[in-house]
């Protein structure tokens, strides 16, 4: 399965966070790499799995259903957004 960019899930993220997150800087818990969210690797099937392009650590998982979403953001040690 080939990956997409974080940019591809801009819609889900904006619906969740109320703002565009693709230009936010994220830090990976696995290797400490700082990356723009647009730049991380995203795998999409029944749900969304985002992985660090540098060390493949799972950054977050999102499952969308009809009336709810399940979130697991275990792989971000920080997320920096412009205020």
């Amino acid at each position: 399965m080939t990956h997409l960019d974080g940019n591809a899930i801009a819609g889900v993220l904006e619906q969740l966070f109320g703002r565009d997150l693709t230009l936010a800087s994220s830090r990976c818990t696995g290797c400490g790499a700082m990356r723009e969210v647009a730049d991380i690797h995203v795998y999409r099937s029944a749900g969304i799995v985002a992985r660090c392009p540098d060390c493949d650590t799972v950054l977050f998982r999102i499952v969308e259903a009809r009336d709810r979403m399940w979130l697991d953001f275990r792989g971000f040690s920080s997320l920096q957004v412009r205020s």
Binding site: G6, A10, G11, E14, Q15, D20, T22, L23, A38
Partner: peptide
């Protein structure tokens, strides 16, 4: 439809 989204590209 949800959008437009994305400020990167």
């Amino acid at each position: 439809l949800r959008g437009p989204v994305g400020g990167y590209f």
